[in-house]
């Protein structure tokens, strides 16, 4: 549904996106993950036709972004990072205007506005001026305007930024409810957003592709090992040596006062590790599974891993 091939964007000397290639399957929710200034917004602006690319190709819903921009714009709904709201309009008036410029036929406009207000939970604020509603509602108006022409593809730039935890949860639920009907590409620099909402992820850093694929595939290809982080009374070479002796354990390293214990995929040595710690009186304080993708992301953005 979205295909990007060797996309490059330069702002003068600065290369914002470099040879980016990825693909999003229809009906899935994909995350575009990267630290700030990784090129997420630039990529999305190119896909939505706001900016031209310097080189490369991109197609959305089968239309080339550069050859048939109007067809692409009709099949894409876009929530920019800065909400494009006219503060002096009412919520329903604004959505009506967006329906007009997105070329929703006049006869269907009223129904379209009612539909998106319903699904974005805006029924209570329809007649209020946008400048008078809360940040959370504004964000929902932003998502509602992206959905107004029932596009096949939704591109959401940082949809939960600046919201409080309850609002973040609501917006995530809203996005999840759109799965299947729409193909969604959302950008974020928050990892849990990806693991909670998305089916797959494209990780970029400094404009380069670091990894992409469904969450399961990525986990399978990058984590050769399963393992736990162990917090003991004392974490030193002595304890590490003891743990290494557990049958099946492949690697034990000391990381910031904790021990990382790893073993081959497909086994589960958590009981064995815990038993050893208790039997030897190592003072077990905490034991938690290593979250695979989190680990991967931290390695990628800290530059510890090249693809």
């Amino acid at each position: 549904m979205i295909e990007v091939q060797e996309l490059t964007k330069k702002y003068g000397e600065l290369v914002a996106v470099r040879d980016l290639t990825f693909k999003v399957e229809p009906g899935r929710i994909w995350g575009l993950l990267g630290p700030n200034a990784a090129g997420k917004t630039t990529t999305m602006r190119i896909l939505t036709g706001y900016l031209p690319a310097t080189a490369g190709r991109a197609t959305v819903a089968g239309f080339d972004v550069f050859e048939e921009p109007d067809a692409v714009k009709r099949s894409i709904g876009y929530l920019p990072e800065v909400l494009p709201l006219y503060l002096d309009m009412t919520v329903s008036g604004y959505l009506g205007f967006v329906a007009e410029i997105k070329q929703v036929p006049a006869a269907k406009r009223r129904a379209a506005v009612a539909r998106v207000m319903e699904s974005a939970g805006l029924m209570d604020v329809g007649r209020r001026l946008i400048k008078n509603i809360s940040r959370g509602y504004k964000q929902r108006v932003g998502i509602a305007q992206a959905m107004i022409h029932d596009p096949k593809v939704l591109v959401l730039d940082e949809p939960t930024i600046g919201l409080d935890p309850a609002q973040i949860k609501e917006i995530r639920e809203l996005i999840k409810s759109l799965r299947g009907e729409h193909t969604i590409l959302l950008s974020t620099h928050i990892l849990p957003e990806v693991t909670q909402v998305c089916d797959g992820v494209v990780i970029i850093n400094e404009g380069r592709l670091m990894a992409s694929g469904s969450l399961e595939d990525l986990a399978a290809s990058f984590e050769r090992n399963d393992g736990v982080m162990l917090k003991l009374r004392r974490a030193g070479g002595e304890e590490a040596a003891l743990l290494r002796a557990v049958p099946g354990v492949e690697r034990v390293t000391v990381e910031g006062g904790e021990l990382r214990v790893e073993w081959g995929r497909g086994r589960d040595l958590r009981d064995d590790v815990a038993r050893l710690a208790l039997d030897r009186g190592l003072g077990l304080r905490e034991m938690r599974s290593v979250a695979g993708i989190e680990d991967l992301y931290m390695k990628i953005v800290s530059g510890g891993l090249e693809q």
Binding site: T48, G49, K73, P80, V82, L85, I101
Partner: peptide
């Protein structure tokens, strides 16, 4: 200034 140009330019206008 308000970023609403992004809405206009990403609409079929």
């Amino acid at each position: 200034k308000n970023g609403t140009d992004e809405l206009l330019y990403t609409s079929p206008l």
